[in-house]
Simulated assay, not measured.
Amino acid sequence: MPNPADFCLNAYDYHLPPERIAQHPVSPRDHSRLMVVTKNTATDHFFYELPQLLQPGDLLVLNDTRVIPARLIGQKVGGAGRTVEVFLLEELSDRQWLALVKPGRKLRPGAMIQIGTLQATVQAVDEETRGRIIEFDLPAGDRLWSYLDQLGEVPLPPYIDNPIEDTEQYQTVYARRPGAVAAPTAGLHFTPELLSKLAYQGIDHCFVTLHVGIGTFRPVEAQDIRHHHLHEEWIEVPAATVERIQAAKAAGGRLIAVGTTVIRSLETAAQSGTLQPFSGKSDLYIYPGYRPKIVEGFITNFHLPRSSLMMLVSAFIGRERLLELYQQAIDRQYRFYSFGDAMLILPSACSNPV
């Protein structure tokens, strides 16, 4: 049973010295550090040791989403050239997108924005996200996707102070399905060579897709976290992945989800009690008291205080244990957030094993 304190937003706070926020990825990627968590221990390793830390027959599930150039810079038409930022969240139709805009107060319905060669009009305010529904003036038959590489930038989290040299560093090596506005960061540690070594050890992988949107990184504001609502994100758990998972588990292997997005994808697809193929949107919100349906162990980065991602991890290993692990990571000089180090939470550490 969860502690009543587990539902209090302030109970997910912790102090992180600014120097512990990773400002750039390590190179090679798999040389990041890895805290391996069991029921009673938390030991220090490197990510490239993963083949020795897992067991033959285990199955890694990866999120193959790809971050799109979602950050567009333009000027408000008739606004004395005022610079505006349009942060794309979701395609609603061939011409319309849901987006966050800055400065929001100056971009009310009817406002027009010039972005490179394209003009866009604010159609409406979306109350749930506090964003805008924006319609782009495109030639007949065109979609905005074909313009994004030319007009947009891959967005980085606000705590990254300087641009990175190569935006591919903010993509997983297996990213193939464009649609995310933030990277599934637990997957950033993998290299092609590491995946090959894992396969050689009998540790295979398969894919789901969750296009990371505002639901993943939107701040939790409700003091009682049960009143928070996640914005829907698009998920696909294909039949081939379901078959691979079922076969691995039948053979005695363990399912290791790579990242919170994979956890949400698989748990969404297993809400009936058994894992089923799934394609559609999900607002599944996992916090203490949730009983996992399918996920046994997982890999995750160190997350921001008071975030829904901390609450998700707490549902598996307990909030107090998570905060203890975070303090140990700080004391041991781990790097935090998107470009930071990772944790491998083995099934023995989970308080509600499947």
Rank of each mutant, 00 (worst) to 15 (best):
V173K: 00
L151C: 06
W145H: 04
D137P: 07
E165M: 01
T129W: 06
T172Q: 04
A183C: 07
A140Q: 15
R130A: 14
D161N: 11
L148V: 10
E193T: 07
A175H: 02
T185W: 09
Q169G: 00
I133P: 11
G202K: 11
I164R: 12
E168Y: 04
L194W: 06
A183K: 05
L151E: 01
P157H: 11
D161I: 01
A182Y: 02
P155L: 01
T129V: 03
A199P: 07
T191L: 05
R143Q: 14
T185P: 07
L148I: 09
G179A: 01
L138K: 10
T172P: 03
A175L: 02
L188K: 04
A140W: 13
T185Y: 11
I160L: 12
Q171P: 03
V181W: 02
P163D: 09
I133C: 14
A183L: 05
A180Y: 02
L138Q: 13
P184H: 03
S146D: 14
P163V: 03
T172A: 04
I133N: 12
H189F: 01
E165K: 09
G131C: 09
W145Y: 01
L195W: 04
K197D: 15
L194C: 07
Y170P: 08
G131A: 10
E168P: 03
D161R: 14
G202R: 11
R130W: 12
Q150I: 04
Y170C: 07
T167F: 12
H189P: 09
E193V: 00
T172R: 05
Q171Y: 02
P157M: 08
I160F: 11
N162S: 13
W145C: 00
G179I: 01
A199W: 11
Q171F: 02
S146M: 12
